[in-house]
């Protein structure tokens, strides 16, 4: 397993092979999307269009299953996570290329974006005060545990994906070194499955975290509403 090396330096920025591969993925997905969607047909969709519509509808259905009515809001971010992680994981199968997700910097960046998106969507669904208030429920004593949980799950998100992809490439490399040329082929087949599974897990966990942030503040708001209405009810009963 070879670490990401610096390809060139752009001012103070050191461009690594991971970034170059990611740019390649961006170019591939961007051009592919533009080519695939430039002539969409409502009446008679082709094979590629049908596959694209099936993929988008599957993502939409998954989001609707977790957060009904929020698919339009979350589809770009969660869908991009699924697509990018899946393509990035599969990039490791291409000779002379390494999966960007085998670099902790990439997975940490993705986890950091998930961390930010959880709070962003949570705040957008209500307000900053309401969102921050849910860290104090059910008791302010649990605030440190809430914060620790936020950090630990973000760290786990980054390390899980990095560890799985890095270990897959390393296992294939070790088998290649020990057994010969064609022996790693089954390992590579396993790489495909593992790449797709890890992409699904990463995107699903991100979706669940975002849904938790949006629903937790809603639950907090609901409990506050109930507690504020209780004296009124009591007063009216007396």
């Amino acid at each position: 397993m070879e670490a990401a090396h610096i390809v060139f330096q752009l001012g103070f920025l050191q461009i690594t092979s991971t970034v170059i591969t990611t740019w390649g993925i961006l170019l591939l997905l961007g051009v592919g999307s533009w080519l695939a969607t430039r002539s969409l047909s409502v009446a008679s969709p082709g094979l590629v269009q049908t596959a694209l519509e099936g993929a988008v509808q599957s993502i939409e259905a998954a989001i609707e299953g977790v957060l009904p009515g929020r698919s339009a809001l979350l589809l770009p971010f969660v869908g991009t996570l699924w697509i990018f992680v899946a393509v990035a994981n599969l990039t490791g199968l291409v000779p002379e290329l390494h999966a960007p997700t085998g670099d902790l910097s990439t997975t940490a960046a993705l986890a950091f974006l998930v961390f930010l998106s959880v709070h962003w969507f949570g705040i957008c669904s209500s307000s900053l005060k309401t969102y921050l208030h849910h860290y104090l429920t059910p008791s302010p004593v649990l605030l440190p545990f809430h914060l620790l949980g936020e950090l630990s799950r973000t760290l786990a998100l980054a390390v899980r994906l990095f560890g799985n992809i890095m270990s897959l490439e390393m296992a294939a490399l070790l088998v290649l070194l020990v057994a010969g040329l064609l022996v790693p082929v089954p390992i590579l087949m396993l790489h495909i499955i593992e790449a797709l599974v890890q992409a699904y897990i990463f995107g699903t966990l991100a979706l669940i975290y975002i849904a938790g942030g949006m629903q937790s503040q809603e639950a907090s708001h609901a409990s506050d509403t109930r507690s504020s209405n209780a004296p009124d009810k009591k007063g009216s009963s007396t």
């Binding site: 690594t16 961006l26 961007g30 770009p76 991009t80 993705l110 974006l113």
Partner: peptide
């Protein structure tokens, strides 16, 4: 650097795919 560039890359990909 890679961390920051990957964040930018992902946001760019998010815009492109969207």
């Amino acid at each position: 650097t890679t961390f920051l560039l990957e964040i930018v890359n992902f946001l760019a990909l998010l815009w492109i795919l969207k």
